[in-house]
Amino acid sequence: MNGWRERAAQGIFALAALVSALLTGSIFGFLLFFGLPLLTGGRLTAILTQPWAPYQGAYGIAPMLAGTMAISLLAMSIALPLAMGCAMLISLSGPGPTGRLLRKAVAMMTAVPTVVYGFVGIFLLVPVVRQLFDHGSGMCVLAAGLMLALMVAPTMILFFCDAFARVPRDYGLAVLALGGTETEKLLYVTLPCAWRGVLTGTILALGRAIGDTLIALMIAGNAVRTPTSLLDSARTLTAHIALVFAADTESLEFKSIFACGLLLYLFTAVMVVGIRAAGRRRPGR
């Protein structure tokens, strides 16, 4: 009766999905289009390894890559144990009010805007770091890493908790029935069964840490140098884009931010593919 209407609706829905998907591709296309002049003719290796010295014609983004890695890995190494501990506590306290309240608090923390972390970082954390270590302005890898850890930890906790909750209850009951404690249950059953979820949560959090702009931009100092200590100022790929985008659009300097964008894009793609591959292989029996 309304055959054409059904078909038209299906066509519209399919078109919407196609447009949304093509958008992902066109983002890559635009980044490539703008960044291409910098990537051809053997300049690719140069841009990935050279230092940043626009006045000498060197537009390498190696220092930014190093800055991104230093800050996000520091953040992860702080956030991972914190998140693990907190997720364990939620898991150990079971369905009681402590666990529920804690979960709610953690979920709320994911709503805090990153610019707020950056703002408080500048005026609260940076002065403390400056006075404590008496080194430079206090805007450094350490300060950014600490704030970033605080930003990604809640996401990790929620992910870990979900992974723990997916472990079949019978496994845990078996341990308890044998006289094991809640702690032993967590340690010998829940954790080993949930490692895949833990890994996925960690990768996602790493992605958020690498992709965050504002915290590093506001409190890492943005010096274009490969950081050699936690107290060195550093610039991330994301902050570099935010700082340079207003340059002359014909300059190579401007083009270099598209190299940063491409790098971030590729990283995201690899992460997504990795997580999908990890998810597909079901844990053995």
Partner: peptide, 18 residues
């Protein structure tokens, strides 16, 4: 699915740059 997952994972500065 991968297209939407990548879009979801893209840093917001990359979307801004686009």
């Amino acid at each position: 699915d991968p297209a939407f997952d990548i879009l979801a994972g893209l840093p917001s500065i990359v979307v801004g740059l686009f």
